[in-house]
Design a protein around this nucleic acid. Structure first.
Lengths: 341, 341
DNA sequence: TTGAAAGCGCTACCAC
DNA sequence: GTGGTAGCGCTTTCAA
């Protein structure tokens, strides 16, 4: 653990020159810079984090609150944490993890002790308790997800309404007149914020396009239930004359839907068109691969980190909801790959 | 963000007294302590993290390396991260997350910049690259998992061999003579360290008890495959005359096994006994609930954090593998709940 | 039982 | 383009 003093001595310059050379905050002659870089390399020098935090005004740390509740879908949460971490590192930031144990208290603690420069809030609930905390935090915060009460907050999220609209448009363009949404169980509509937005987008756009929309929100039941409720919901939608399904549910439910369609001898897309909306898992590995308007963790997290960085610079972005435009990925489950549109 | 100076003034004492009152490192008169505590509360004072890191020799931060690979079983990893975080907080430590992006480089970086006091290593692979890094890190590290080459390292893990042995003993005691292990796919035996240990424990204890052991390691296939390979493996084991199954596989495979047994009209435990070993998920929610020798993240992570704390104190524990004793949980899938043993 | 003051290792201001 | 140095807010001797 060499210190800046040793680097300065080795390079034959003052410590302030070393500091500036490393931060790039003032111009250094090429030759001096070379010598310093060499000394840094040879001594394996790295500025002491504590000293930096104290002297500078930056910790280079983001706190990340991710409740990690047992009842949530782990792969998606993992993907968001990973994406945030990677995005942060690109700005030379580390990530300090705050879990359920002390979601609110932890935020206050790290903020008032100056352990981080900003807080990134994941797995946002409609009535998230972290909203109130964020408002009086004293440091910037960015929500990945949109709580009901988001006045004055900076939030990032996929535009779920537009995502559902994109799916409906695609189905309308393909000639479907009656379409069904198979959504998460009703409980998810309370715990999370996007299921209602998907549903609203689905119904609104269907109306705009003159389609007949139906909605089913089956309780998936346990992992051992083989998705009977989901399969029954598919049956109910088909009985109503639906020719296309928009899925907004977990991957087990997706498989249950495909099983049910297969069991009925219905081909995709020949007999029924299927689109997955807001999924974080891979729909191309399914049989058949499904068209998808995905929820891309990287997109949301990159944007969130960018916003946090802006808030730390002079050019603070305005509070508000920053929606990410959805993207349609065609894998042939609405229109036959080689068929003319 | 009050500073220690303000607290001292408010309490009418010197800053060193405030510091000592907060750290408890020297005796303070009850009355003085009261005044200080009141001032701290009223000013919402919290020591500045950077200043503490610099002046003290502690960061109160653990780095946690968890690759978060896309191909790993997310719920288990999430559980370990959560358990580590909770254990750390109990010692007033925060957790800094290091992901795959820079597993080794990140460890070096946080260690040489003095960003953490110790490194906790999760999701350990047999040939883990972090082993070499840990050896020259300059700060303590604790592995949760046992890499092949663990000379000089401190490692914590469930005693998987004993866990498998416990399951075999239970089956032998119940009168089974021919038993089968249904394990993870072969690839897991390279990527992770415990599948081989389960298998070794299974085979050794079976030999010691004079039982006939069989092993199947089916490739589970995609989520859409409905566990055909697993079900075929069950058939293969039954064909060999096995009357009891030890499962060491993911929960989807567990369900596939139960499905296959049900499809064959075999009752548990009447016709076939089943024990799950090394699982992190809930086997009591299955049909029927399964006996289990669980892998408890909390147990491993608590121990790991304790060891890390010890390494930071004077009483450094010896390098070596700290195995956690397995625990048998009876849910009636080997011996009928109300039947006499 | 308490206080004064010397750093901890940097950053960034002020000089040159 | 470079150097000197005053803090940043604590912890921890050393003194009393």
């Amino acid at each position: 653990m060499a210190k800046i003093h040793e680097v300065a001595k080795a390079a034959g310059v003052s410590i302030s020159t070393v500091s500036y050379a490393l931060s790039g905050k003032r111009t250094i002659s090429a030759e001096t810079r070379q010598r310093i870089e060499r000394a840094v390399r040879e001594l394996d020098y790295r500025p002491n984090a504590g000293a930096r935090m104290l002297a500078g005004r930056r910790t280079n740390i983001f706190a990340l609150t991710e409740p990690f509740r047992a009842d949530t879908y782990a792969p998606a949460h993992m993907a968001f944490v990973l994406a945030t971490s990677i995005a942060a590192r690109r700005h030379d930031y580390d990530v300090l993890l705050l879990t359920e144990e002390e979601a609110s208290a932890g935020m206050r603690r790290v903020a008032t002790s100056g352990l981080c420069d900003a807080v990134l809030v994941l797995d946002v609930a409609p009535d998230d308790e972290r909203v109130g905390v964020a408002r009086q935090l004293g440091i910037p915060s960015v929500f990945v997800g949109v709580p009901d009460d988001h006045d004055g907050l900076v939030c990032v999220d996929l535009d779920f309404e537009a995502a559902a609209g994109l799916a409906v448009d695609r189905l309308a363009d393909a000639g479907h007149r009656s379409i069904g949404l198979l959504g998460h169980p009703p409980s998810a509509y309370l715990r999370s914020n996007f299921p209602p937005r998907i549903r609203a987008g689905f119904e609104r756009r269907a109306r705009e396009r003159g389609l007949d929309p139906a909605v089913e929100l089956p309780e998936p039941g346990g992992n051992g239930s083989r998705g009977v409720a989901v399969r029954a919901a598919v049956g109910a939608l088909l009985d109503r004359g639906v020719t296309a399904l928009v899925l907004h549910c977990d991957d087990a439910a997706h498989h249950a839907v495909l099983d049910e369609l297969a069991a009925r001898g219905l081909g995709i897309p020949a007999d029924v068109a299927v689109i997955s909306v807001g999924s974080t898992f891979d729909t191309t590995a399914m049989h058949p691969p499904l068209d998808v308007v995905p929820l891309v963790p990287q997109a949301s997290c990159d944007r969130a980190v960018d916003l946090a960085m802006q808030m730390l610079s002079e050019s603070a972005p305005a509070a508000g909801v920053y929606l990410i435009a959805p993207e349609y990925r065609d894998h042939g489950s609405v229109v036959q790959p080689d068929a003319p549109r």
